[in-house]
């Protein structure tokens, strides 16, 4: 009897928290279906060309807790793009990688979206600046991203932007025995209140451990830009960029 009421108590807690989780999940912007399409397309690009196209979606340029070297939160989309591209540790399948693209090839592309400010930015790595010029990137964004975003079809707009960008990247003739990145889509779990912990940790440490356990029970992985906690422990360095690319509003 006593045991039964404890079980009911915990069940109620679990239900309450899952309700809470679903509520806060409404800030997830891109539908799972499109995220999966983007991920699988980007994985194929990585396999064929070794280039890495990464999509990052932010609810806002404020409150994401990504800081520059002086410790101030970055509110400028260009600076944020350069920072995420080069210095932000992003989760990959076997650990953490800093720098988008392969090391030495600098063949990464970052698509950055700030929903509230209605700003987009395509940051191109050094190694691809010749294949994806600023003008070409702008043309792609104007043709695929901006119209879809104006209609509210965010996932679709991102997917076709990724496809169009990938068509500019030449296939690699060398055998690709480089590890695939594993993840190409990141979404900031944003809050308007700023957090003092680094953003890639606050889902792990900011939420009580038992809530995380409930997440796992429900088969939902949410940490790191709504990613599962890293499975490997490796730290890798990747490609670099230097502010190349284009940006705008929709």
């Amino acid at each position: 009897m006593f045991r039964g009421s404890i079980a009911i108590f915990f069940l109620a807690l679990i239900l309450a928290y899952s309700f809470f989780v679903i509520q806060s999940a409404s800030c997830y912007i891109i539908e799972d279906e499109w995220v999966e399409k983007i991920e699988s397309y980007a994985r194929a690009i990585d396999a064929n060309t070794t280039a890495e196209i990464v999509v990052c979606v932010f609810p806002s340029l404020y409150g994401h807790s990504i800081k520059d070297s002086s410790g101030a939160e970055i509110h400028d989309i260009v600076k944020l793009g350069v920072h995420i591209f080069n210095e932000e540790p992003l989760e990959v399948y076997d650990g953490i990688q800093t720098g988008i693209g392969k090391k030495g090839k600098d063949n990464g592309v970052l698509i950055l979206i700030a929903m509230e400010e209605q700003q987009w930015r395509i940051e191109v790595g050094y190694g691809l600046e010749g294949d994806i010029t600023d003008i070409e990137a702008n043309l792609i964004a104007q043709n695929y991203l901006v119209p879809a975003f104006q209609q509210g079809n965010y996932g679709e707009g991102l997917y076709y932007t990724v496809v169009a960008l990938s068509q500019q990247i030449p296939a690699s003739n060398e055998s690709n025995n480089l590890a695939l990145r594993g993840y190409y889509y990141y979404e900031s779990v944003n809050t308007s209140e700023s957090s003092s912990t680094p953003f890639w940790e606050w889902e792990i440490f900011g939420i009580p451990l038992w809530v995380v356990i409930i997440f796992i029970l429900f088969g939902v992985f949410l940490p790191v830009f709504r990613r599962g906690s890293s499975r490997g422990s490796g730290r890798w360095s990747g490609g670099r960029s230097g502010g190349g690319g284009v940006g705008g509003r929709w």
Binding site: V78, V82, D134, I135, G243, G245
Partner: peptide, 23 residues
């Protein structure tokens, strides 16, 4: 328009490299 996009990209590159140089 194309020149403006290129100029804007150039200005972003300059400010990025300038920041790294100053660091």
């Amino acid at each position: 328009q194309s020149l403006m996009i290129t100029l804007e990209g150039t200005e972003n590159r300059i400010s990025t490299e300038r920041m790294r140089f100053n660091e």
